[in-house]
Nucleic acid binder design. Structure first.
Lengths: 351, 351
DNA sequence: CTGAAAGCGCTAACAT
DNA sequence: ATGTTAGCGCTTTCAG
């Protein structure tokens, strides 16, 4: 009977529990949330009855009363789920882990073009306690919007904003400086950087880091060193093929992602060039599932970070912000590790 | 002022609108939802005021009143987001597309081990109007549970259940029969099937289809023809290596997924066997992003379906069920297309 | 320690 | 055509 009642989902609400136990709704409510001032005995009695009835608070009613939903939103372009080469799923995996651990819900909010509209809607319909946004532009209008909406948020990545905001980002700047220095140490001067699309902040940061490394040695980075292209195997391949046809081809490639590096490897193979001996390749590796720098042959020297870990951090910080465990904006830059493998060798003397 | 009010999210609720317009809350509410009986003139006036104020109904309050959330849940093992080789993301992409089109929300509900608990919670906390579950077992207890909970649901995949339920599935049975027939037509008799794990219905169905194809010609499928292993490149490789070491190795491999087929290709390359000439390979291709039968070399003969399309269908059906546009359970089996490429050739006469 | 009552913001009968 | 009223199921003062 109890079982069938639970399964049939029949109004296991506070009112019926109160009736059955001869207590008031508020006592039940307090007992269930272990409020101070409820004697252990009644608390136990109430919890037992609630369990037996399969009671769970109605999330909507509770959140109407409390003003919180215990749900965070992830706002992203629908397209990011459709591309074969994306690190989005890894971020999502991290977020899911954190959300599960903290007992929050995750609302997926894909958009086709009107992201601001989605954000406004999430804020005013009060469906979430906070949101995660990704891939910030160099100057990103979403920051101001979200601050104005007073909706807690965390950005995956940094941006140049006047106002304060929380973010988690990989240490792209230093990673690229480190990679550039490595190549410089090996005697490379004619390096081609296969970077991402210029509108993103991290891409600009990487470009700057590259030039900084040269400047620090009193060198000037070669003109046209940096290619601003998308992060796919295909573009990596095409770009490498194009630059290998230069009158004076580079002695090293520095890639923004393992996807691009794969394409570069393919181009080099096609030119009969041995990676590490004839030409060097290094890249940044976000730890995307199934696309590791380690698995290329030869294994690829890379700065390694965990994009999934980043996703986890992002969600944890957002939840802290929501619960006011964090009060000021949290800005976290995740470390990387330089992993030396066999894809980098001494620069051959140029012809 | 209006703008700042909107941005600051200040109580743009029905009450304040009613006050400002000198109308009652219910009139505003009706006008906004274009109820019959509201004159066009007032409707326009109300809508204009609401727009100006940036009003959106509070989703929680609305759903508490209506009993619906316009949200569907996707319940899945957290792990499925972590594996490199998974078709889950493609299903998710399809679901996201449908949900966006129908103006629903998508609640992601990963679980670590207690799926039934998550389902119970979603049902009794009333956070979603319905759920999608995936990867049914041969006999799956979730069906009975969800029916008892009276929570609308759609399964991705079929199962043997007494009671009615809605599902969307690929036509695995006929796809595998077709593939088997193709190999038989080419004279293959000693075929090894690299199937999935036996607990899943579709795996059992594929095994049955394979044997049916043999039986239809008065042949008996070879003993030990079917390998029940996981769907990864690594297992494809290992299984192929093992079977190639048989005293009498197979003349063809039939794989359950492109992932496995990739592994098989690698094993064959290692044995110096030319696919299509020395040995044949065919597989089923779900249209997973970045893992297409078309992109292997030689391109792989396969039965092709769109797993993303399946995701889309699933969500659309669930929403129809919720909105009672569909009343009886909907059971949809998606077609496949046999795509002939160059990985299948005539069987070599056995030694 | 416990209960009564108000209220979260909306919808939907039920008036008028 | 519009307003009044009563919930939806919970939390939270405020009394006792």
């Amino acid at each position: 009977m109890t079982e069938s009642k639970r399964l049939h989902n029949d109004a296991a609400d506070l009112k019926s529990l109160a009736l059955a136990l001869g207590l008031s709704q508020s006592t039940i409510s307090r007992a269930l949330r272990a409020h101070p001032g409820i004697p252990e005995a009644t608390r136990r009695r109430v919890v037992a009855a609630a369990d037996a009835a399969g009671y769970r608070p109605n999330a909507r009613a509770r959140s109407l009363a409390t003003g919180r939903t215990e749900t965070i939103g992830l706002v992203f372009p629908l397209q990011r789920l459709q591309l074969p080469e994306t690190n989005f799923v890894d971020v999502l995996a991290g977020i899911s882990t954190a959300v599960t651990a903290r007992n929050y819900n995750l609302l997926l909010s894909p958009f086709e073009d009107d992201e601001a509209g989605v954000l406004r809607k999430l804020a005013s319909s009060k469906s979430v306690d906070g949101v995660i946004i990704t891939r910030p532009l160099v100057r990103d209008p979403r920051i101001a919007l979200l601050n104005a909406l007073r909706l807690p948020f965390v950005v995956h990545g940094r941006t140049e904003a006047q106002e304060p905001f929380s973010f988690v980002d990989t240490d792209n700047d230093n990673a690229f400086e480190r990679l550039t220095n490595l190549l410089l140490d090996y005697g490379h001067r004619h390096i081609v950087v296969i970077n991402g699309l210029a509108q993103f902040r991290y891409v600009a940061a990487r470009a700057a880091a590259f030039e900084r490394a040269f400047a620090a040695r009193g060198l000037a980075a070669p003109l046209d060193a940096i290619e601003f292209v998308s992060m796919t195997e295909a573009t990596g391949y095409e770009t490498a093929m194009r630059r290998l046809a230069d009158p004076e081809p580079p002695t090293a490639f520095l890639c923004g992602s393992v996807f691009q590096a794969r394409g570069v490897y393919r181009a080099l193979a096609q030119h009969g060039l041995a990676v590490g001996r004839d030409i060097s390749v290094a890249c940044h590796d976000d730890g995307v599932r199934g696309c590791s720098a380690m698995d290329l042959s030869p294994p690829l020297t890379a700065t390694a970070t965990s994009i999934r870990g980043a996703g986890e951090e992002i969600a944890l910080i957002l939840i802290d912000l929501i619960e006011r465990k964090a009060t000021a904006p949290v800005q976290k830059i995740l470390p990387f590790e330089l992993v030396l493998r066999n894809s980098v060798g001494l620069a051959k003397p140029s012809a």
